[in-house]
Design a binder for these strands. Structure first.
Length: 257
DNA sequence: ATGGTTGCCAAGCAA
């Protein structure tokens, strides 16, 4: 069977509801992992997704952060929670079709000098420890979401302009690559060596100038990666009216059964 | 790019 999974930082699920529903109708993914829902659980618009035949799992708070995983297939919410996010709602671990899917919204970090940055670096290293403790790369595991770090030079519009800046600071890249060493495959890079971005600042028309970063990822364990037939960034939804500043990333697998 | 935009929620913070 074909299994299509997408990741999208929507920058408020309520502000983006009609665009997200449009995406679901047009692209028809089996699973969509959403970041930055920016809504507490009692106000999450779950009925709108259920009407399209999706099941919904979400974890949010007022104003900031928040993630949601929606799926056409049954969702099991893993009792295991990641402690490294402290009390912020940034991670949601589910199992769908026998695949563990970890939906992640990494801290932004603000500036390399700030306390937020320390929290970001800690978050990444603690996440690696957490994965090593509870999972192995032999299992069917996907981690995906807004990682808020560009992994390589090719993932930024201008490596000199970005040097030492938030999202491309050596300490974040080191942490991210350390996380990658768990044994993941960056599915977008499995198919493309081209420069491509998943986020463009709202300001100064950066999208139209293609000044962006690739900070949204779908990473899977190797065996699953072999079954991945396609992975791309869907820029269509960054061009629309009232877009998120991120575009969805989509991966398509061919699974047995 | 030493500016610029968006969202939440009604000022200022986070991104």
């Amino acid at each position: 069977m074909e299994f299509k999974i997408a990741s999208w930082n929507v920058n408020s699920i309520r502000a983006r509801l009609s665009l997200v529903l449009e995406f679901l109708k047009e692209r028809n993914p089996d699973v969509l992992c959403i970041q930055e829902t920016k809504v507490e659980d009692k106000l999450f618009p779950k009925e709108e997704f259920e009407e399209l035949g999706y099941k919904v799992a979400f974890k949010g708070e007022k104003r900031f952060n928040g993630i949601a995983t929606i799926s056409k297939h049954p969702i099991t919410i893993e009792p295991l929670e990641f402690e490294g996010e402290k009390n912020q709602k940034r991670t949601l671990i589910t199992k769908i079709n026998g695949i563990t899917i970890i939906n992640l919204y990494f801290p932004n970090g603000q500036t390399p000098e700030s306390e937020h940055f320390k929290y970001k670096i800690e978050f990444i290293y603690k996440l690696k420890d957490f994965l090593l403790k509870h999972y192995t790369n032999e299992k069917n595991l996907i981690i995906l979401g807004d990682f808020n770090v560009a992994k390589e030079e090719i993932d930024v519009y201008d490596k000199d302009a970005m040097e030492g800046k938030i999202g491309f600071h050596p300490k974040e890249r080191e942490a991210l690559n350390e996380l990658y060493e768990f044994g993941f495959v960056d599915l977008f890079r499995k198919f493309s060596k081209e420069k491509a971005f998943s986020w463009w600042d709202y300001r100064a028309g950066n999208f139209w100038k293609n000044i962006g970063l690739r900070i949204d990822y779908i990473w899977s364990t190797p065996e699953l990666a072999q079954k991945c037939k396609e992975c791309f960034i869907d820029r269509t939804y960054r061009k629309k009216k009232k877009p998120s500043d991120h575009a969805p990333v989509v991966a398509v697998f061919e699974l047995e059964g």
